[in-house]
Simulated scan of single mutants.
Amino acid sequence: MNKIMKDNYRTIGRSFYSNRNIEKAFEFYEKAYNSEEGKKDIELILDLALLYDEIYDFDKAKEKFEEVIKLDNTDSRGYYGLGMIYDNNKNFDKAIENYEKAIKLNANYNRAYFYLAGVYDDIKNADKAIECYNKVLSLDPNDFWSYVNLSSIYDEKGNLDISLMYIEKALNIDPEHYMALFNKAVLKKKLGNTCEAINLYKASIEDNPYYGFSYLNLSVIFKEKNQYEDAIKIISEGIKNNEEEGYLYYNRACFYAYLKNYQDSINDLKIAINLYPDFKEYMKNDIELKEVLDYFL
């Protein structure tokens, strides 16, 4: 197969991929690859690696990234790709090793720093995570998720004012993003500004009604005010939009129990346990459910 045919197959593959026809994309990428020239084309092999990664065939993706490195051991993308594979498999030592190799070859590799920060966050090395996220921001001051993730790290460290500063920076980039609004609501609640937290949770829900924790946290605020009917109304709306989230049923069961509506509480607990069987053990020590536990014991 000559170079023109190989490039044509690759172009057709890309066209199918852009239209989300993954099966046909593979067909033409592999036609391009199954040639002497194809097996030497790093860009083509990277495309294949990313396709395999997208369909969660991590073994094949790893194989292709290793091919890239074998062809050119100075190509930072091969190491970055391996870092992603090891990261997905929770092999954090190997992920760090490969992300750092990518960075050594390309000191401005934005995404390598970003995902390396995520690994350090996963292994609870907050200082290294902060260092890497700040490097990302030095390369791209508008990286929304770096601000969000830095805010979360400082929240965990108990530095609420710094956490709030970073989430405000994220919201300056995307003022209506549900996750930034949610995180700011959490912070405002911790800082004692419950009214603002309520409004932020409502704004988060408006942007994304399929994120169940916004409903949960908002409903808990009303539960803490002993406004159980309002709490039930909010969490019921959450269930309507997130029918498979067991924790929403579980918490609504607790609200019903407070109102002595034991049958509805039992019904919700049945659903919660069906979705997440570990709730059956957890509820045994939940004082909020003491009136309905006999049904399950």
Rank of each mutant, 00 (worst) to 15 (best):
L248N: 04
S146G: 03
K104I: 10
L269Q: 01
Y52R: 04
R77W: 04
E224A: 00
Y201P: 10
F58E: 07
L200W: 12
Y56A: 11
Y276N: 14
G158W: 01
N251R: 06
Y133T: 02
D57W: 07
D207V: 00
S163Q: 00
A32T: 10
I55H: 05
D140G: 01
A253W: 03
R111A: 09
G158Y: 01
N226T: 10
I221Y: 01
N199A: 00
K225G: 00
S18E: 14
M283S: 05
F58K: 03
N34G: 06
Y154N: 09
C195L: 12
I198W: 09
S163E: 03
A231V: 10
Y33W: 04
E288G: 10
S219F: 04
F222Q: 07
K31T: 09
I103M: 01
E245M: 14
Y295H: 13
E27C: 05
K64E: 11
N208I: 05
K169A: 11
L164G: 00
V68P: 01
Y249T: 12
G13V: 07
M84E: 11
K124L: 14
L46N: 03
Y178C: 03
D161Q: 12
I239P: 01
T194W: 02
A253P: 07
N88Q: 14
R14T: 08
Y79W: 04
K128R: 13
A129C: 08
R10N: 15
I103Q: 01
